[in-house]
């Protein structure tokens, strides 16, 4: 579903990703772990199409399409979803308003009839219940005054609603207490399926107790230095990231 080849990315002329190779098949959940500054969030943002990241080399194929050539909204409509590490507060637009506009933009792109207000409300209320949010949140301005946990749950709510083919979770676990983490994981797990894939970016192993990955990659200095199964995450938890840095230092 997603094939990343030799991806090099710079920000303001400074190289951040130095040749990423990654292949994610439908049905798989991949976790990207790594210390701060290793390039995890850059990878997530480049895939979603954020501006001011310069791709200097490499390619990304998504469902056989050139992902890097697509505008962010086209990626979204084609089923790519980024759960933001720092969801943006937008005072003045209600959650509901955005969610409906979003669902219908995607449906329209895919030649599916747009939902009317009644159909949409029925759908969204089911999803709200899944992430154990109060319906009041729908009528509040997007993320304004939300706690960290509420913002993250709101991201998952959007994911549940949009049913993306490829979900990218950028440190969705950061700032969550264990109860919120469980709710988020439960939501994420309902989106898993044979036709879908997921890239979970996280600093800590904790999230992976609840969203069990098929493959774990360790990112360091903008490159994948090791890949393995879920036990790799436990190893990192036990040993910390120090040994990677030590090994990188030993093998320049």
């Amino acid at each position: 579903m997603l094939t990343i080849k030799n991806l090099h990315v710079s920000v303001d002329g400074k190289p951040i990703l130095n040749g990423i190779d990654l292949n994610i098949n439908a049905g798989e959940v991949h976790a990207i772990m790594g210390p701060n500054g290793s390039g995890k969030s850059t990878l997530a943002n480049v895939l979603a199409g954020r501006e001011h990241y310069q791709v200097t080399a490499g390619s990304v194929a998504y469902k056989g399409l050139d992902l890097l050539d697509m505008e962010p909204e086209i990626r979204a409509r084609e089923g790519v979803f980024l759960a933001f590490q720092y969801p943006v507060e937008i005072p003045g637009v209600t959650n509901l308003y955005l969610l409906k506009a979003s669902v219908n933009a995607i449906r329209k792109h895919n030649h599916v009839d747009e939902l009317n207000a009644v159909e949409f409300l029925k759908l969204i209320k089911e999803k709200v219940a899944l992430v154990e949010m109060h319906e009041d949140f729908l009528y509040r301005p997007i993320n304004e005054g939300f706690s960290g946990g509420e913002k993250k749950r709101n991201e998952i709510l959007q994911m549940l609603l949009l049913q993306p083919t490829l979900s990218i979770l950028d440190e969705t676990d950061s700032g969550l207490d264990i109860d919120a983490l469980k709710i988020v994981a439960k939501g994420v797990n309902t989106v898993r399926g044979d036709a879908r894939a997921m890239l979970v970016v996280t600093h800590y192993q904790r999230l992976l107790d609840y969203i069990v990955p098929d493959v774990v990659h360790v990112l360091h200095n903008g490159a994948i230095v090791r890949s393995g199964d879920k036990s790799l995450a436990l190893e990192l938890e036990r040993e910390g990231y120090g040994w990677i840095e030590a090994r990188a230092a030993a093998q320049p």
């Binding site: 954020r50 909204e73 979204a76 409509r77 980024l82 943006v88 979003s102 933009a105």
Partner: peptide, 8 residues
């Protein structure tokens, strides 16, 4: 970007 990432 946030809104575009949601398909608008």
């Amino acid at each position: 970007f946030y809104l575009r990432a949601r398909g608008l």
